[in-house]
């Protein structure tokens, strides 16, 4: 069984919710990646989403854009990230999910990328600029390697399409909570809960909400309708400030919130 599936099974058994922090690999230097992954595991993450910096991140808001620019200035690249992740794999037990735009993968070579990701112990991959219609470019390789392609749905995705995407199901369904880019937000559109409910009804795989989630109240509200959340910009910010104390506090509050539901 894949680590992602296992993680969700364990959560279901205790009626818990997944909490998936996102970090930008190479922000603060690639050498601290392993240590940060260990920290996040220690603080109770269900899985970790590791961002690969890209020069033109069209799905990302200012916080993650800036983190990506810092990482690129540090000379971060996909090859080196995979090397670090293979080191991390011996020390970190929870699932590791790469989030990368397609071009760094394409440039490395799709076969080579999938092989190296698999041997680095990467469990899943989120590719924000790869909709269902284009996924044949990499899906056969992923299937062969047992790396899960994590697909996205958004509030603009029609229900029939949500059904289609989720039924291809691997890992979990990444449900984008906003019409827009990543980044912390004060509040969500009114229709969001209904949207999440619909997705949850339709999807045969766990539903995880992401984009714009940054506080306890949002998480408490959203997890009523789904199986977990991704928190990105907030975590990236705390790491950028190197504020580990606040990170620990934030994560323990989140864990409590997720467990309470």
């Amino acid at each position: 069984m894949n680590r992602i599936e296992q993680a969700f099974r364990q959560l279901t058994a205790v009626d818990g919710k997944a909490f998936i922090p996102y970090i930008m690999a190479g922000d603060g230097g690639l050498s601290c990646l392993v240590e940060r992954l260990q920290l996040l595991e220690k603080f109770g993450a269900t899985a970790i989403e590791v961002g690969v910096p890209f020069s033109d991140p069209v799905a990302d808001g200012p916080t993650i854009q800036q983190a990506g620019i810092r990482a690129l200035k540090n000379g971060t690249n996909l090859k080196d990230i995979l090397v670090e992740l293979s080191k991390a794999r011996e020390l970190v037990q929870i699932p590791i999910i790469l989030m990368t735009y397609l071009n760094p993968i394409y440039s490395l070579g799709i076969n080579r990328f999938v092989q190296e990701a698999q041997s680095a112990g990467v469990d899943g991959c989120i590719i924000p600029d790869l909709p269902m219609e284009e996924e044949e470019i990499i899906l056969p390789q992923f299937l062969k390697a047992g790396v899960e392609l994590i697909r996205l749905v958004t509030p603009t995705t029609p229900v029939e399409r949500v059904r289609k995407i989720s039924s291809k199901g691997s890992g979990f369904l990444y449900t984008v909570t906003v019409k827009g880019i990543t980044g912390a937000r004060g509040e969500f559109d009114g229709g969001l809960n209904a949207f999440l409910q619909t997705v949850k009804q339709v999807s045969p795989i766990p539903v995880v909400a992401g984009f714009g989630i940054s506080n306890e109240e949002q998480i408490a509200e959203l997890t009523k309708y789904c199986d977990g959340v991704v928190v990105g910009s907030k975590i990236v910010e705390l790491f950028a400030k190197n504020n580990i104390t606040e990170l620990e506090t934030f994560m323990s509050v989140i864990k409590r919130t997720s467990a309470k539901i």
Binding site: V58, A59, L102, P128, D129, L130, P131, M132, E133, E134, R151, L152, V153, T154, P155, T156, T157, P158, R161, I165, V176, K179, G180
Partner: peptide
């Protein structure tokens, strides 16, 4: 070519 865009834009 193709349609390598975020899912949010696919409907559009």
């Amino acid at each position: 070519g193709g349609r390598f865009v975020p899912e949010t834009l696919m409907k559009a």
